[in-house]
Design a protein around this nucleic acid. Structure first.
Lengths: 205, 205
DNA sequence: ATTATCTATAGATCTATAGATAATGC
DNA sequence: ATTATCTATAGATCTATAGATAATGC
């Protein structure tokens, strides 16, 4: 059972597992879970198919490992919203950070989007145990800012949804954005300016 | 070749093709193209698998037919944005209509989202020929409203993206919204109020 | 000695077709 | 006569394993 080894994982173990997960991110984010094949992942990783299965228990195990590993990184910025900071700037900084993630990590965004779109079959537990408590904490924080008259009175939950949706759109619907923006450069810069205006006007007390 | 029949399609033809497309919408929107099987579609339609293939040339043909048929309905509301109307109200009416579509047609929304997310392999031509000209016309219209001082000066293209993303989010990311809203009733009503405020503040001249 | 990798292939799943049979419309 | 439907199965694609061989670390 080389998967989840009891003792010290060798350097090769670590390197190959990483290569497989990198390859899997590429393939799964492009084709979805069912659309991806072990052949594609093996090819992308530069390993043979049976060798992939030497490091992971199966296709599903690769996918689950990938989702779990990325979940943390993905949620991290929301946790950085600081109760001590200036409310409008804290929320806007989060929005800008999220947009930056669409630019830097579009594959991660699409991987999650695909999983949620299909009902989160492999991620539902993590949504409950990881995302939800964080979401609750932050909506409570935003509500306290509203109650303190620091920002306009809006529903904090829908505020967060709208930050997520507007920023992720540029990664998840990239194919459509590309067609409509006609290969224009700096689309994300334009989005950055637009979304800053949008949320600044919304939040002004 | 009963598919695309030269003459008059019989009543049975019409009824069964419709049943297959209904079933395919259900199955494709839930599992994506690769995740869906003809068995599932046949089952959902209440027909045998070979019978499905009697009416359509194959799995791909069903998917393409479905996308094409839905495209028109899907874009229709955008075309209704009236150059003669009151600018802010026209844009807000479009937003509300789009949100209503997330409520009424979540499967259609997810079908498209899935297609775009995977790079629009079967829809790229339609994006170019159908969506793009419409998008250009409407961004031009919105720009003319801006130039006339009727609404605030913002990038019309990003405005449309943000209307799409915020409204579709409730259909496409339903699984996540459900977890975070804890099965609360009237989520879409809350969204309607929130988004009305969001865009009204943005557009105010 | 243990870990890592390969070739070959079993076994499952899926799309699609062949060919026979039943139902429908002039 | 033509259209619609069914059973049976071919053929392709994919996941996963068996079993042998090569590379690595005490």
């Amino acid at each position: 059972m080389p998967d989840a080894p009891a003792r010290k994982p060798s350097r090769i173990q670590l390197r190959n597992r990483k290569r497989i997960l990198d390859a899997a991110l590429e393939v799964f984010s492009r084709h979805g879970f069912r659309g991806a094949t072990l052949d594609q992942i093996a090819d992308e990783a530069g390993l043979s198919k049976p060798n992939i299965l030497y490091y992971f228990d199966g296709k599903e195990a690769i996918h689950v490992t990938l989702l779990n590993q990325l979940m943390e990184t993905w949620l991290d910025p929301l946790d950085h919203m600081d109760p001590e900071g200036e409310p409008v700037e804290e929320i806007l900084a989060y929005m800008h950070h999220k947009l930056e993630m669409s630019r830097a990590f579009p594959r991660e965004s699409r991987l999650f989007a695909n999983e949620i779109l299909h009902g989160a079959p492999r991620m539902a537990p993590h949504l409950e145990s990881g995302l939800k408590p964080l979401f609750m904490r932050k909506t409570t924080l935003i509500q306290s800012w509203i109650d303190g008259g620091k920002i306009a009175s809006i529903d904090p939950r829908h505020l967060i949804f709208s930050i997520w949706s507007t920023t992720q759109h540029y990664a998840d619907f990239d194919a459509q954005v590309r067609v409509l923006m006609d290969g224009e450069k700096g689309v994300l810069d334009g989005a950055d300016t637009y979304l800053d205006t949008l949320f600044r006007k919304l939040l002004a007390p």
